[in-house]
């Protein structure tokens, strides 16, 4: 497999860090290399946060994504979207929550912008807003096809408290479902 580079962005407190850890650990336990780095501001809540995830079969030294090399980005905050979108390669996929981010026409021309209401799904369909990071995780994996889904799911379960296993399994499956629907729609438009 070639190197896969993903970026998750949001604001502090949204829990975007966890998805990165799960990805890295899933790749490593499957026999490869994975690194997660997080960049955040001194603001405890509300500052733009970016998580870079690099997965490879070969050893990875430098842990950050180089601008222009990111294959996939997921964003749940306008401020972070604006700050970090330029790291994504032209034609790369950016998944956004349409209730939180309004991309410009220029953004839509440059990238493959996919709208999935992640926060609404977490709140209304799962009933637990914290599961947004697991929804994001399965959406990302469905798009980049980096980790065998059952393996990713089992690593995810090992990283969240038992009492929320059921909710997170539901979140994982919903993420996959919405991502597949979005991909089908894209294929029809292509």
């Amino acid at each position: 497999m070639a190197r896969t580079i993903m970026r998750f962005t949001g604001v502090g407190g949204q829990g975007v860090l966890l998805a990165g850890e799960i990805f890295a650990e899933a790749k490593i336990t499957a026999g490869g290399y994975g690194l997660k780095t997080a960049t955040y501001t001194s603001q405890v809540r509300g500052g733009p946060t970016v998580v870079d995830i690099t997965l490879d079969d070969e050893e990875i030294f430098y842990p950050y994504a180089n601008d222009g090399e990111i294959d996939f980005m997921l964003s749940v905050a306008q401020v972070s979207f604006d700050l970090f979108k330029n790291g994504v390669s032209g034609g790369g996929t950016i998944v956004i929550d349409p209730s939180l981010i309004k991309p410009s026409q220029a953004d839509r021309d440059k990238w493959n912008i996919v709208e999935i209401p992640i926060i609404t799904i977490a709140k209304e369909e799962v009933g637990l807003v914290l599961t947004q990071s697991v929804i994001a995780l399965s959406i990302a994996n469905t798009f980049v096809d980096a980790i065998e889904p059952e393996h990713l799911k089992s690593v995810m379960l090992s990283k969240v408290p038992k009492k929320v296993h059921e909710a997170n399994l539901k979140a994982f499956d919903l993420g996959t479902k919405y991502a597949k629907e979005a991909m089908e729609k894209l294929a029809q438009h292509a």
Binding site: E21, A24, Y33, K36, I60
Partner: peptide, 9 residues
Amino acid sequence: ETIGHMHGK
């Protein structure tokens, strides 16, 4: 900060 917060193998 990079190495302290970096998560990997």
